[in-house]
């Protein structure tokens, strides 16, 4: 490339470089630095070095919260994939107009604030007008009751939040999936289940894994739904990080907890990738 052209390119990329490196890369490094800094009573941190925040991570309460986070992530991701996969497949086979309606609908729910969705679920599960009244009418319950706080409420709300992301992740691959391949397998005598496992699964394994991971990451990072709909004794890591930073004014500790949570998320990602790959070999 000529000198002038290179200069122009550098100039063109200067603003994106400044913002992306300045606001993402540097702050991420800063997070690591703060996590090993001593706490300052003013709510910030002071210069120096200590592993105090990391030592505090070994408390059983925090380890339990981390386990809760990971368990919830796996459950929500599995449910979302189980529902999202067939849903996406059916959407990709619809007529164009219907497809657009579903996509606009999903994008709208996707973009709605988790605050508004958690609030909606709280109203939906309330004793006064909530779902329990429907259950009473159906004879499934004796009297209306509040269905929150409970783990079920948190999981329902999280599946609601995550499902549109699952669909949008699977949409490209499933809309490219040719129906003739499946039909060919069926003509050759494969049962529907076998056609699915031997034709559809290998073709969509990668995106399905990404959809699973995306759902897991969104769940791990979710702060509002467990806070509004969950039981305090089951508060996941995200809620504890938030309260450590906001109510506890302990940024070093919140940073260390964030790194801890991130580490667990990466571990989960590696495990998921290994499971997805392991099945291919079998």
């Amino acid at each position: 490339m000529q000198h002038a052209a290179r200069l122009r390119l550098a100039l063109l990329l200067s603003w994106p470089t400044l913002t992306l490196l300045g606001l993402v890369a540097i702050p991420a490094l800063l997070l690591i630095r703060i996590s090993i800094a001593p706490r300052d009573p003013s709510g910030m941190w002071s210069p120096g070095f200590t592993l105090h925040a990391y030592r505090a991570l070994m408390e059983p309460e925090l380890l339990g919260a981390l386990l809760d986070s990971v368990e919830m992530a796996v459950v929500v991701a599995a449910i979302s994939l189980g529902l999202g996969f067939p849903l996406t497949y059916l959407i990709t086979r619809m007529r164009r107009g219907q497809q657009v309606v579903w996509l606009v609908f999903l994008l709208t729910t996707l973009s709605l604030s988790d605050v508004l969705i958690a609030f909606s679920w709280q109203v939906m599960l309330s004793k006064r007008i909530g779902l329990s009244n429907v259950f009473v009418a159906l004879g499934l319950m004796d009297a209306p009751a509040s269905l929150t706080p409970s783990s079920g409420a948190v999981i329902a709300c999280l599946v609601y939040l995550v499902l549109p992301f699952t669909v949008l992740t699977l949409f490209p691959v499933l809309s490219r999936l040719k129906t003739d391949v499946i039909e060919a397998a069926r003509t050759l005598g494969a049962s529907p289940l076998r056609a699915f496992t031997s034709v559809v699964v290998p073709l969509t394994r990668g995106p399905a894994m990404i959809a699973f991971l995306m759902a897991a990451i969104l769940t791990v990072g979710a702060y509002v739904p467990p806070l509004v709909l969950g039981r305090p004794q089951h508060w996941p890591m995200a809620v504890l990080i938030g309260s450590t930073a906001l109510a506890g004014h302990d940024l070093p500790r919140a940073s260390a907890m964030s790194i801890f949570l991130l580490g667990a998320t990466i571990l989960l990602a590696i495990l998921t990738a290994r499971v997805a790959r392991g099945r291919r070999r079998a």
Binding site: L30, I217, A222, Y223, A238, A245, L262
Partner: peptide, 9 residues
């Protein structure tokens, strides 16, 4: 990145 981690960052 998980959103809670981003917010702390």
């Amino acid at each position: 990145l998980p959103s809670i981690v981003l917010s702390i960052v």
